[in-house]
């Protein structure tokens, strides 16, 4: 039930990654962690303490780190590379493309500080194109968990999956509301609330804002089918089609450019199976800037109010 969704606490998704990789290290001796001088930002402290021999410092050299990771898989290791999302994707796109994706290597590219909520560091670091870049690579799995607990669960799940993965999470403390003991299923959409008037698909930090928006819409008598798309690729087309056929209109919400992200993935499915009015809550083809996370979400149109407005607009187009 929508009204039952409440934060357990507020925690950083990157901290969920840190706990997850330490646990993955305990479960599987082949798990190896690499970083490009950002071990502390990526919360690797526990892993480094528990498994110093399986921690590999690469220095500020991300391209090399991706290649090292590809090489480590030859010998059965499961390397997790860690740096900011920008340096995990656009900085090293050709290395990821050739040495990891085309070569089919079992590398887990773990990317923190994604999106606007990186905050004050500004646009150089606020990658808003990474979901698009990574989902376009054949064979690449793209995961965007929504909170601390889900990030931890996803971090564990990808160790058991054979193949390249992009795992995207973020910097700020954020409402943590999914169950601690959840089973993370790659490729499965997570239905958070069932409704009949509109489908809202969200990923990452925007899922919590979509929960809040759905509650506001409920007060207005609008029933929301609320779905967390933590797996951008593979995409749970069945769940998406089922929802859109039921509601007949769509809102997507993501901390990403309007081009190439979750919204486009949903539009792709809808256009082939169940065309419907669709409004995007996303960054409108522009770069970010310095500011607090909340100021930035507000300025760039990524708030619960924006989701509510988008829903009303989509509903009016039905």
């Amino acid at each position: 039930m929508l009204q039952d969704i409440k934060p357990l606490n507020e925690k950083e998704t990157r901290a969920g990654f840190g706990e997850g990789i330490a646990e993955a290290g305990r479960r599987n001796p082949n798990v190896v962690a690499l970083t490009a001088d950002l071990a502390t930002s990526l919360k690797l402290n526990q892993f480094m303490k528990d498994f110093p021999d399986r921690f590999i410092q690469c220095g500020i050299a991300e391209a090399n780190m991706i290649g090292i990771a590809a090489g480590l898989t030859i010998g059965g290791k499961i390397p997790y590379t860690t740096t900011f999302a920008n340096f995990s994707t656009s900085r090293v796109y050709d290395q990821v493309r050739q040495s990891v994706a085309y070569s089919g290597k079992n590398v887990k590219i773990c990317a923190s500080h994604a999106g606007l909520t990186l905050g004050e560091d500004g646009a150089t670091h606020q990658v808003l194109e990474d979901i698009g870049m990574m989902k376009m690579l054949p064979g690449m799995t793209v995961i965007v968990p929504c909170d601390f607990n889900q990030t931890k669960a996803a971090t564990l799940a990808i160790a058991d999956y054979q193949g390249p993965v992009y795992l995207r999470f973020g910097r700020p403390k954020w409402p943590n509301f999914t169950p601690e003991d959840q089973k993370f299923e790659i490729g499965k959409a997570q239905v958070l609330a069932e409704g009949t008037d509109i489908s809202i698909f969200a990923c990452g930090h925007m899922v919590w804002l979509a929960v809040e928006a759905a509650k506001i819409l409920a007060e207005k008598g609008i029933s929301v089918d609320l779905i967390n798309i933590h797996s951008i690729k593979p995409l749970d087309e069945e769940a998406i089609i089922k929802s859109i056929k039921k509601t007949g209109c769509i809102v997507t919400a993501e901390e990403h450019q309007i081009n190439g992200g979750l919204g486009d993935s949903i539009a792709n499915v809808a256009s082939r199976h169940c065309p419907a009015p669709h409004e995007y809550v996303a960054v409108q083809d522009t770069f970010g800037e310095s500011g607090t996370p909340m100021q930035l979400l507000q300025k760039y149109g990524l708030t619960k109010e924006n989701i509510v407005a988008a829903a009303e607009k989509a509903l009016a187009r039905k």
Binding site: V32, D53, R54, I56, A63, N64, M65, I66, G67, I68, A69, A70, G71, L72, T73, I74, G75, G76, K77, P79, D94, Q95, R97, Q98, S99, Y102, S103, K105
Partner: peptide, 22 residues
Amino acid sequence: IASGSLGQGMSVACGAAFAKRL
């Protein structure tokens, strides 16, 4: 490993050598 886009093989070889050490 795939190669062709130049300059990536030494990193891969380093990673494989590291795996052998582990």
